[in-house]
Design a protein around this nucleic acid. Sequence first.
DNA 1: CATACTGGTATACTTGGTGATACTGGTTAC
DNA 2: GTAACCAGTATCACCAAGTATACCAGTATG
Lengths: 127, 127
Amino acid sequence: MKEEKRTALIEEVLGTTRNQQQEVQALQDTIYVLGGKWRLPIINSLCNGNKRFREIERSIPGITTRMLSRELKDMEANQLIKRTVIDSFPVVVEYTPTDYCHSFGDIILEMIKWGKDHRARLKLSKR
Amino acid sequence: MKEEKRTALIEEVLGTTRNQQQEVQALQDTIYVLGGKWRLPIINSLCNGNKRFREIERSIPGITTRMLSRELKDMEANQLIKRTVIDSFPVVVEYTPTDYCHSFGDIILEMIKWGKDHRARLKLSKR
DNA sequence: CATACTGGTATACTTGGTGATACTGGTTAC
DNA sequence: GTAACCAGTATCACCAAGTATACCAGTATG
């Protein structure tokens, strides 16, 4: 028996492999749910208190009306946000994050942190 | 002057808006660097100690040889990983993460956590 | 000898995410 | 009255990301 295969067997028996598989699964699930360029920025914007369509749109550089519309619809269908039509005059539409949506908070925080560090690194290396 | 515009102006003067803009920037930067389905799973696999091409391939469900090959090349060009050819007999190729690569650790951790919670939630709601 | 492994490359194909642009019907500010 | 705002929808088209499949030369296993 080859050394590699023995190692593999031992790992399987001890459960290391299974844990790893579980983690890759979890990671891929999350990536799937967060798929695309716009999900996280939209969630972030909502969590920052933006509620109105154009308000959200303005808060995300590069997004088009079309993409925002599509994503919001999709996210509403997936219980990530709530769409409320306020029967005032004129009618106002508000989007609010659900609790489920807030559960992405830590991921977003870490990604913002990474992005900021990244910028800092680039500035340093330019000097 | 409309109430909304006043609020916007006040926010801009006080800096809230600028901070938000900075954060969206950072977030979008990170999303860009991590772009695609495979980056994070590959980084995760490498950080878990997988070094060999087929080893990494096996550790990521669904990835094809082609995508792995492309991503590894790209990541090497971007200093995320190091490719080492070990001059043994037969020749062996090893991929190892750089420090830079390790800086994604926290993001990955949070995403794995989310994915696991997500599965747990689904199981609960099925009962 | 056959089979399966290693570290990939080559070719052909598809698809959906995204961009660009325009439009609607109503409201409000100047 | 006209210009700009609101909350979107419609249509067209592109292309990078991804899939599928086969292939290579070499090595180890039984």
